[in-house]
Design a protein around this nucleic acid. Structure first.
Lengths: 128, 128
DNA sequence: GTTATTGCAAACAATTTGCACCCAC
DNA sequence: GTGGGTGCAAATTGTTTGCAATAAC
């Protein structure tokens, strides 16, 4: 479990820090190239995987099947509509206390958590 | 948003009721065929999608990228190891109260939620 | 009979992998 | 120099889709 960071991992990390919402690997790659980084999609995936292993980056899968990546620091708690797939961020996270308890447990080292509620958003409730 | 259940959806639902852990679509298809259901993988996916839309079935993505399906009734809350990918079920769910609050809100109709903590399990902590 | 559902196979797309090249140390 | 990191393109694989056949009503 190496902990050293490579050049690519650093540029991915830097980019994620400027973003306020999770992006797909492909979108991240496109943005990096627009910023004149010569980087391949495979490297973006490899970097994201490495950063996840270090507990710096998290991913969740969107309704369309692709994975969305963001910093662990940026809490990700959503209300997600089963019908249209849209995710509405939750303001507060109700499980911080439990996370703190778990963090102090030696048997499992917690880096971060995700919490997602699934259901129907207001517009989708009125369709039949 | 139709609510009627088809024959295939019913057999998938029946199978899920007999299982105590989430399975992939492929595994579900295999099991159904072993039980002499003549069913195609595509139909399993279509059934799972329909059941999800009805709030009966939930899915989460495993470490290897595939989706694992289970009944909404079967709570799914995990400690997941970033290193080996193994998921350890949590005994209790700390967010039921919040879910109850959200359920009574008219603006978003909550069917179910997922909660997952990510980190390193005990064996993986000792590797370096 | 008409319409929705199904199985199959082909298509698709996100992700992973093989490999030659290149950079850092 | 050597070993790890990288880009590219090919391979892989979970999932979706087109379509003819079938089942439901």
């Amino acid at each position: 479990m190496k902990t050293q960071i490579t050049r690519s991992q650093e540029s991915v990390l830097k980019l994620l820090e400027t973003l306020d919402r999770p992006l797909s690997a492909q979108a991240l790659c496109t943005q990096l190239r627009q910023q004149n980084h010569r980087i391949g999609l495979a490297t973006v995936y490899r970097s994201l995987e490495a950063l996840k292993l270090q507990g710096l980056v998290q991913s969740r899968s969107a309704a369309n099947g692709e994975s969305l990546y963001s910093l662990v620091k940026q809490d990700q708690h959503y209300l997600t509509c089963l019908h249209c797939g849209e995710s509405f961020p939750l303001e507060t996270c109700p499980v911080h206390d439990l996370e703190m308890q778990l963090r102090s447990s030696a048997s499992f080292k917690v880096f971060y958590h995700t919490l997602e509620f699934f259901g129907l958003c207001s517009p989708c409730q009125s369709e039949h």
